[in-house]
Amino acid sequence: MRMVWLATIVAALATAQAETEDDKGTFGFGRTPTEAEIKALDIDVMADGTGLPDGEGTVAKGEELYYQLCASCHGVTGTEGPNDVLVGREPREGFPFATTTGLSRTIGNYWPYATTLYDYTYRAMPFDEPGSLTPDQVYSLVAFLLHKNEIIAEDVIIDKNSLPEVVMPARDRFVHDNRVGGPELR
C-alpha cells in the first residue's frame, strides 16, 4: 500500500515537473495554428513591401472610389475635413512642425512610407465600414492619394512592386528616440 502511494507521489511530481519545465522550458499550452489561420490574420505591410498582396490600382479608379467612399469625411479635395486632412505638401521647405503650430500633418508633408498608407487604409478605412475594401481598391485609393499629394504621376500603376519604391517627401525626417532619463533633458 505504502509503495503504491509513493509511486503515485513520484508520478505526480514528475507530471508537475513536465508541466512547468520540460526540456525547452515550455508549458505546451495553446496549439499550433494552421497556415490558413495565420494568413487570415497576417494583414500587415512593412516598409519594404513585405505583406503586400497581389493586385494593382490606378489613380483614375482611386479617384472614383475616393468620391464614393471617402470624400464625405475627408473632403472632396482631401484638405477640408471634417476628419483628418489627407492632402497637402505645404510647407515645402524644411519640416517646421515643432517650431510652428497649426500645421496639418498630411501624407504629403509628414508620412515617411507609402506602404503605411496601404496598411492603414486596408485595416481601418473607410471608418464607417472598416475592413470592406479589396486589395485592388486599396491600391487605387493609395495611387489617387499619392497623386493628389504630388508624389506620383497620374499614369503610375500601384502594386506590390511599385509601392515600396515610392519615396515619400518626409522619408528622412524621422530619428529614433534618444531620451535616456538622467539629469540631461532631451
Partner: peptide, 27 residues
Amino acid sequence: KPFMTREETSKYTDPLPGGKARQFSFV
C-alpha cells in the same frame, strides 16, 4: 525591424526643432 504603422509615423511621433521628428518615443 519595426513595421512603420500609421500610429508610429503619422501619429505618436514628436517633431523637434531642427527639422526632425522623434519616433518610437515610448517612455
